[in-house]
Simulated assay, not measured.
Amino acid sequence: MSVAGLSPNFKVAFDANSQVFSLAGVIRPRSVDEIADSIAMLRQAIDDVRGVLYVDVKRLIQMNNTAFHAFVRVALDACRARADLRMVIVTSSVVGWTTRMFGHLNQIEPQITVEVYDSTFYPGQSFVEDTSFIPILRTQTKMTWRHERSILPRHGLRPGIAMADVCCGIGDFAVLVQKEFQPARIVALDHSKASLAYAREVATNFGITDIEYTYGDASEMLLEDNQFDFVSCRHSLQIFNERELLLKELYRICKPGGRVYITNEKNSHCLGEPRAQSIQWTYNEVAKLFSHFDMDVELGPKSRRYLADAGFDDILVESFMVTNLDGDPQDFADVITAWENVYAGEMAVRRGDTPEFIERFRQGFRDHIFAALHPKGYAGWPIWVASGRKPT
């Protein structure tokens, strides 16, 4: 890979192995001469590729007309000179102006297409970002916080540090951390505009003004390298189909010596008594259902391997069981009801399961609720916690 820079805020690179030419940061030259080296790199990339050249602008924060027209002119001229060449410009909904700015090029030149990278990146996104799920997400956080508040200090969370909560969802975890640990800075990032709107509303209602809620793609964050002492990413790796990309980003924004903290589940280990057999069957099927949509709710015990492969050291792993005895058993039952509605009521239908299967599937959730509310019953939901240190 070759790299050149116009300024500390702008980077251009070409990866010959994957045939990706990338632009990142802020590019606002006063004249084309200022970006002559970058234009030359694009020309060289075009000469080197066969087939498709991918032009990655997912991290392009700003670009003025001088730069835009200079790069586009090279691209158009190349396509007209080479019938064998195709260009795919890869944008992101997080930086929506790039889609609008580059989008019309296909009308000018059919060999150029524009793809919105994150429109299909998260296969399970529609399930987990349903706004009707928000009350249950709050209940889940309340139930897990009883455990995590004592676990987090062992994994590096302490007052006065800079923290990022990636895939923050409705933002309730960031609020609890801010109240309990008082970090000097919290950036909370998510890809769901609806969740962020809710998060900002909650923060306003509680008079919290020092959480920076940010819209962003967790696999291509517009955050600088080495910014945060502590980076959390809870219940999110398990719903990404390209977990290595997300871990690479968590590693990048973490300071050397800082820690990345992740939580994930192993759904097949959800349990309950009485009616244990029905409950176990259903949660085994939950794992298979998520796998169908390229998600892995069995990821919890794999956390150590993922962190090690991403380059972290000093890896800590522990687990805890959320149960019907943690506070009000009805809270546990409400969470399971929401799972039943989404997993059996939407995901199984989308997969094409038969009515007979879905009815048996539902029964396991109902039996889990029965166990949670039974005066002598026990119901559990296991969570794996892991963190790794970014080497200095």
Rank of each mutant, 00 (worst) to 15 (best):
D229L: 01
L246H: 11
A194H: 13
S93G: 08
K179S: 12
L137N: 07
G300E: 08
G25V: 00
L152P: 08
S126R: 12
V175Y: 09
P110C: 06
A199L: 05
Y378P: 01
T99D: 01
F361C: 04
L105N: 04
V12S: 01
A70I: 00
S278F: 06
C270F: 13
A348C: 12
R305S: 13
R50N: 13
H235T: 10
G327S: 12
L76I: 13
I383Y: 11
D48P: 02
S119V: 13
D296V: 12
L157C: 05
E242V: 12
T214Q: 01
C270M: 09
A197Q: 07
S319Y: 12
E265Q: 13
T139P: 00
A78K: 01
L189N: 02
E180L: 07
C233D: 07
I136M: 14
F365V: 00
V116I: 10
F357D: 07
R350H: 15
F181K: 03
E298K: 04
A184R: 14
R362I: 03
R80C: 06
T99A: 10
C254K: 05
A338Y: 06
V317W: 08
V57S: 01
P135V: 06
K179L: 11
T337Q: 14
N267F: 11
I208W: 04
G380V: 04
L237A: 09
P256N: 09
E340I: 00
V49Y: 03
K288Q: 14
A45H: 00
D367I: 02
T120R: 09
S195M: 14
Q280A: 14
A67Y: 00
T66S: 02
K255A: 07
D353I: 04
A16L: 04
G156R: 00
D130I: 09
Q62K: 07
V32K: 03
L316W: 07
T209E: 05
Q125M: 07
D314R: 12
S132R: 15
Q125S: 12
R100N: 07
P8Y: 02
L299T: 10
G51V: 08
I208D: 05
L271W: 13
G380D: 11
S232F: 03
I383W: 10
I170T: 15
A371M: 11
R59A: 04
T131M: 14
P256C: 09
V128R: 05
M143L: 15
I46L: 10
F173W: 14
R80W: 04
N9I: 00
D47N: 13
S2H: 13
A333K: 06
S319K: 14
P153W: 11
P29C: 00
T337A: 12
V322Q: 13
F127W: 07
E359Y: 03
K193Q: 10
A184L: 09
